[in-house]
Each structure stands twice: as C-alpha cells, then as structure tokens.
Design a protein around this nucleic acid. Structure first.
Lengths: 216, 216
DNA sequence: CACCCAATGTACCATGTGGTACATGCCGGC
DNA sequence: GCCGGCATGTACCACATGGTACATTGGGTG
C-alpha cells in the first residue's frame, strides 16, 4: 500500500517544501508546458515517485505550485506597500513598475500569466489561483489611495485601472521586450494619477527621480 | 507513403478550412488544455488521421489554429476602426470596449490569452502569434490618434497604454465577471483621454450615450 | 468508361504516461 | 539494539499518445 504524508503544519523545510521551491524556480524558467511528472521530477532532482508521494497526484502537485506562486505574489505586494512610506501614489506606482519590469522577474510573470490563463479556461488545478487574483491586489491599493484622500468609489476604480495597466503593460513587455516604449506608456498613466491626486502635499515636486531612462 | 495536401491558395471552404473553423469554435469553448489529437478530432467530427493529413502534425495543426485566431483578431480590429467614423477617441474606446466585454466573446478571449501565454513561454506552435500582437493593434490606433491631432510620440504612448488597459481590464473581467466595476475603471481611463484630446471638435458634448449602465 | 487523386477509414506501432505495489534505507525514541 | 515510520528506489501495469502504412472511397475530367 502507499501513504501520503498527513500534510500537517508542514515544517518549513521538509523535503516536500524543498521540492516545491525548486519546482517554482524550474517552472518559472521553463514554463509548465506539457511537461510530464517524470520530466519535472528529473529536472527537480527527484523521482516521479516522490512527487506522487508528497502531493498525491500530478494535479495535486500543480495545485501546490499554484498556491505557492500565489503566496509569493502576495508577499511581493505586501513588501511594496510596506516600503511605500509617504511617497505619492504616482511615485509608488513608478517604483512598483520598476520592480515588476525587472527582467529577472520575467520568468515568474510568464508563469503567472500561464497559470492565470489556464485558470480562466477552468483547469481545475489552476482555479485556486483566481481567488483574490484581483481583490488581493486592489484592497491594499484602495486603502492606500484613501489614505491619500480619494473617496471610496474613485479609489476602487483607480486601483482597478492601475492593476489593469500594470498587467496589460507587463503582457506587452513580455511580448516585445521594448522597455522604453512601455515605460512611456506607463508614464502617461502615472501623469494621470498626479492630476487626480489632489491630496498629495507636494504634487509638483520634481518627483521624476532622474528623467526616467532619459539617456539609455 | 503519406501525403500532405500542397496547401495551395486554399479554396475558401475546403475540408481543411471547415475543420479549422470548427476547431477555433471548439477551442474557444473548451480551451486547448492537454487535449490530444484524438479528443480534438472527435470533438470536431473527424478523425485524428485527418488532422495529421491536413496539417502534417499536431503542431502544424495548432500553428494553423493560432494563425486563424490571429487573423480574426485583426479583422475585428479593422472593422472597429472602419466603423469609427468621426467619433472622438474616447467614444471609440468606449464602443470598442463594449464590444470586447460582450460575454459572447469571452471564450475567444480566453483562448487568446491562453495562446498568448503559451507563446510567451516559447512554445513553438504559439510563437507566430506574438508577431505583431502589439504592433498590429497599435499602428492603426496611432494613425487614428494622429488624425485627431496628437503628435507622433504621445500618440504611440497613448495607443500602447490604451491597449494595455483593454487587455488588463479584460483579464480582470474574465476572472471576476464584475462588469460594472471594470466599466468604472475603464471610464476613469477614458476620462483621461478626453482631457488630452485637445483636437476633438466637440469634447464637451454629452458623449455619455446614456449614463453607462447607470440603472442595471 | 477509365483514370486520377484528394479525402477518408482501419489497423497498427513504439513510446511515454500517471499511478501503484513492494522493498529498502535511515532516522530518532524506547 | 531494535523498531516504527518517513522517505526513497525499483519494477511494473494498463492505457493513451502521435504518427505511419495501407486500403478504400468518390467525384470530376480526359
């Protein structure tokens, strides 16, 4: 007979979690195309037997990966918001974008979109990803915007639009690699923000922090 | 030995094209998950033998599907632009969005994002989709914006941003189904447009065409 | 009619798949 | 020092896959 470990509180560095970590890294780098359990296991330095052992099945394994990716996304968001300090929304968005646009993150973002689209298609293993895929980003943004004086409704719309801009431009960037062009588009949106952010104490300060990629 | 038809100018309703059409419909409805040739063939009312016969291989088949989807996208865009008439950019964007957001198109859009993300991951059959996936939309938009008085550079950025907003909000809509909330975000962006569109002959006309989903 | 050739059907193959059964290594606690 | 149980390795299975070979149909043209 076989045994699937009780999935208890999960000691932080159990073999299971080690595998998970490596899995995310590998999937980010190579995507989760049709890869079979065996290929994956091989690339992860384990055996397909182990994946089934720790996660119950291939599906179960992918569910775990999705959850972990989701968790990382949220963590990144939290850090961004925490780092915010007293910067203006516009400046926050620029910084956020600067981080997201870093080529080092591209693989993770590709994986994110891949899982996203699979979830949209109703693939069961990716569905958990959808829960909060919008709201978990909007809520903090709304709170932040309100702190800067926007009333509830516009704040929500603004947050939603900002998220869409980020993701839309990310799709663009991943496809074209044209950082300069995408940056210009973002700047256009950010300018909008400045115009609306009536509560910003210093809306006209030279917040450009160096003409955004002017030279290179 | 076997034979793959010479892929000539393709009489418009050859069995090959019939299959292609049904394939798009079916993929839009069910996504192209792991589906095998046989499953697909079954769902399309043909045999896996035929798919290989007409398209050379599974990959070849998917390439053909991708190309066809691409073509449909462009056709839709062309029609939109043609229909434009003399409406303001803001109004155009609203109309465009109204069409895109129609639930009847959701399946196609899901398929689009699925193929998009697969292409981003470097899956060979989807790669052809990337070519022009940004530019083929931006070029007409730029031309349009210029006709409304914007100089080249802002026009490009504006077009790029607009595309990102559309796709980002579409991702949102497909995940949440919250048309009302997404509409509000779009309206926020469109308002921006009006502000910049200095060349619009009637920027203050009640272009709201009925308070956008005010009631329901 | 005879011929051709695109279109389709039937049967098959080697390979890889997800999953399972069973044996074993290896650790800490009694 | 032995024993329980997590972790892992080996071997296997039934099955589905993509692709191929070969035969057959059927409509149009000489």
């Amino acid at each position: 007979m076989w045994y699937m470990p009780a999935r208890s509180a999960a000691s932080p560095s159990s073999p299971r979690d080690l595998i998970l970590g490596r899995a995310i890294e590998h999937l980010a780098a190579h995507g989760l195309g049709d890869t079979s359990l065996r290929q994956l296991a091989g690339a992860l330095g384990t055996s397909h037997r182990m994946l089934v052992y720790h996660f119950g099945s291939k599906e179960g394994f992918l569910v775990a990966v999705v959850r972990a990716v989701e968790a990382r996304q949220r963590a990144a968001l939290a850090e961004i918001v925490a780092t915010a300090g007293s910067a203006s929304p516009a400046e926050i968005m620029r910084r956020f974008w600067d981080r997201l646009a870093d080529p080092a993150l591209w693989p993770h973002e590709r994986l994110f979109f891949e899982l996203y689209s699979q979830a949209l298609q109703g693939r069961p293993h990716a569905l958990p990803l959808l829960e909060g895929i919008i709201d978990s980003w909007i809520e903090p943004a709304v709170e932040f915007a309100r702190r800067h004086g926007l009333p509830e409704r516009p704040a929500r719309a603004q947050a939603r639009l900002g998220l869409a801009v980020m993701r839309g431009l990310l799709l663009d960037l991943l496809a074209t690699g044209d950082r300069r062009a995408v940056d210009q588009a973002l700047e256009l949106h950010v300018a909008t923000l400045v115009g609306q952010d009536t509560a910003d104490p210093a809306p006209l300060s030279p917040l450009s922090r160096g003409t955004r990629r002017s030279g290179k």
